[in-house]
Design a protein around this nucleic acid. Structure first.
Length: 595
RNA sequence: GGCCCCGUGGUGUAGCCUGGCCUAACACGCCACCCUGUCAAGGUGGAGAUCGUCGGUUCGAAUCCGAUCGGGGUCGCCA
């Protein structure tokens, strides 16, 4: 069958006169009573088939009654179209296949939505009939782009001396991090495997094993709530390297990603290396977030000094209680209305716990807004100078704890940048964020937790502060950011068992707990561990960014919905009582109730 | 768990704010017939939605109110 097959998108004028066989789906049909025209589609493109009742009555008869999405085999002779009948919208538009034989291989019901175009359809329906959605042009493109992206990455990794190592999918549950998906053991009732949140520990152990350069296109599973860029299972280019520092990891990742990005002609390509690096403190200072979108300016400014002594109580009090006042200047923000600011923009600020949002318009006749009267002329002057505001601009200000003020303005900045179209859709900014802090304090519990993970190497200059002032300790962790989205994170790892124990101690894991949870790793490090580090770029997010897709589900063949259900097969689903019994499991009464 | 948005023939929308003219409109699709150069084919005719569900207000509800279900976005969460 395949040896004689010609892809629908292949025929060209040079093939005219050839006899060929094409297979595909009916994209459109035009039955003129006499002549019938069929547009036949496969993965490669679309070819017009002509059925003539005079010259091929049997084929014509077979094609009569054919409908969209029917599957056909057509034998025929390729002919040139007359000049006036050329269709410039088709790659094959200069030729057409005159059918000698037309065989219906499969009929199709009228699909629940149009397969031959990319019209918007409710996502629930698309997911339920995913095989039809995938047949449509956009997801076909995405599927193929993703495959190519991965193929080029794999080649680039191998060329750089990495070897692909497969790590287990059923592993020991780790207490830290995201919620695990669990797999019950039949042999050991009451014991469970976990699906990997990442192959982190195995790839580090592979370094101890002398692999030197490990990589894997690895599936990772995390049982957390979904987002537009998060799926319960996702794919990472997981990599780890021995005897390296940050520069080596960056170079390897940059080569792999830029090669694949450019080969796929993703937006903004060709991207060039090296990617810029921004230290974490600078990102927070200038952008308010640890994943800055650098495609536009609107940097955060600090007004704390002006606010401290101002007559505006909200500001002065905030500073007096240890807070800060930060601002962004919205160029041409004169068109922002009071109700927009108090509505949508305030909602954005409040979403990250900011208490309020202050604003001043700079107009030709001076500063305007309800709060302008609380400031002296000098103070307004100072605000203008600090923000660089010009006539026609608007200044948005948040007074709060440092982290909240930065987060609120960072969120507003992202929102305004997108809404006011401050960058072109083809622009791509890839950059590294470096110098992350080693720890952060949990908002809820007040406990100190690792900012990245507990195997991240401490910046050697800060080693002596590990016990005395852990929150000031910097790590050797880094993130890769594309257009304001985190697409990778990694670090140089701890390989000194003593440092590892001190880090565990800082986050409240004592020797005994460490031995119990990560004893195998600590033990491994006692047998000659090479210094190593790595990174794990998210394939789904990179492809998403490259294609300009706004949802991760559109770059995954069979994704899950926000409730982590796969609606086509209806997973998850209850299992037989006998299966549970075999695993030594019983459901709590609450779980038995109909959902 | 919080907040926001959406739910009207097969698909996508309009109508909803300001209840009655809605016996629910439009486009695409679907069905039948006509048509020998169409390609977003064209022409003629036709079928198809009690407006997510339940309850309330009203003489009267797609429209107002409440609850609930489903979907999406987001905060929390994601070492």
């Amino acid at each position: 069958m395949t040896t004689l097959r010609t892809p629908c998108g292949a025929p060209r004028p040079v093939d005219v006169g050839k006899t060929m066989t094409v297979y595909g789906w009916v994209n459109r049909w035009r039955d003129q009573g006499g002549l019938i025209f069929l547009d036949l589609r496969d993965h490669s493109g679309i070819l017009q088939i002509v059925l003539n009742p005079q010259t091929s009555p049997a084929a014509h008869a077979a094609a009569h009654g054919v409908r969209n999405e029917w599957v056909l085999r057509v034998d025929g002779e390729l002919r040139m179209r007359d000049a006036e009948h050329v269709n410039t919208n088709l790659e094959t538009g200069e030729v057409e296949l005159h059918a000698g034989v037309c065989e219906v291989l499969a009929v199709a019901k009228t699909p629940p939505f149009a397969v031959n175009e990319d019209a918007e359809v409710e996502e629930q329906l698309r997911l339920r009939y995913r095989y039809l959605d995938l047949r449509r042009p956009r997801l076909q493109r995405n599927l193929r782009a993703r495959a190519r992206f991965i193929a080029v990455i794999r080649t680039a990794m191998v060329e750089q001396g990495f070897i692909e190592v497969e790590t287990p999918m059923m592993i020991r549950a780790t207490p830290e991090g995201a919620r695990d998906y669990l797999v019950p053991s039949r042999v050991f009732p009451g014991s469970f495997y976990a699906l990997p949140q990442s192959p982190q520990l195995y790839k580090q152990l592979s370094m101890v094993a002398g692999v030197d350069r490990y990589f894997q296109i690895a599936r990772c599973m995390r049982d957390e709530d979904q987002r537009a860029d998060r799926q319960p299972e996702f794919t990472q280019l997981d990599l780890e390297m021995s005897f390296v520092d940050e520069d080596d990891v960056f170079a390897a990742v940059e080569h792999a990603i830029s090669s694949a990005w450019n080969a796929c002609e993703f937006r903004g390509s060709p991207v060039t290396t090296p990617f810029p690096r921004i230290p974490w403190p600078e990102a927070m200072e200038r952008y308010g977030v640890d994943k800055p979108d650098t495609r536009f300016g609107m940097h955060l400014c600090d007004l704390t000094d002006v606010a401290r002594t101002s007559g505006f109580r909200v500001f002065a009090d905030a500073v007096a209680s240890g807070g800060v006042v930060k601002a962004i200047r919205v160029e041409g923000g004169d068109d922002l209305t009071w109700s927009e600011i108090e509505g949508r923009l305030l909602d954005i600020a409040r979403a990250v716990k900011a208490k309020g949002l202050a604003y001043l318009w700079k107009r030709a006749d001076g500063w305007q807004s309800g709060i302008a009267k609380f400031f002296t002329a000098d103070e307004l002057e100072a605000i203008g100078a600090a923000t660089g505001a010009q006539v026609g601009d608007c200044v948005l200000m948040v007074a709060d704890r440092s982290g909240i003020a930065a987060a609120a303005l960072g969120a507003l900045r992202n929102h305004l940048g997108r809404e006011r179209k401050l960058y072109g859709s083809e622009r791509v900014d890839m950059l590294w964020i470096t110098n992350f802090p080693m720890f952060e304090r949990s908002e809820e519990t007040g406990e100190i937790t690792p900012a990245h993970h507990p195997f991240t190497m401490v910046n050697p200059d800060d080693l002596d502060k590990l016990e005395s002032d852990p929150l000031s300790v910097r790590s050797r962790a880094y993130d890769l950011v594309v257009n304001g989205h985190e697409v990778a994170s990694g670090s140089i790892r701890i390989t000194d068992p003593d440092v590892q124990r001190r880090v565990f101690a800082a986050i409240g894991i004592d020797r005994e707990q460490a031995r119990r949870k990560f004893g195998f790793l600590l033990e491994a490090f006692e047998y000659g561990a090479p210094p190593h580090g790595g990174c794990a770029p998210g394939i789904d997010r990179l492809v998403m960014e490259g294609l300009g897709e706004e949802n991760i589900r559109d770059v995954i063949a069979f994704p899950k919905n926000q409730q982590a259900q796969e609606v086509m097969t209806d997973a998850p689903a209850p299992v037989d009582e006998s299966q549970l019994r075999e695993l030594g499991l019983a459901l709590l009464p609450r779980a038995r109730e109909p959902q």
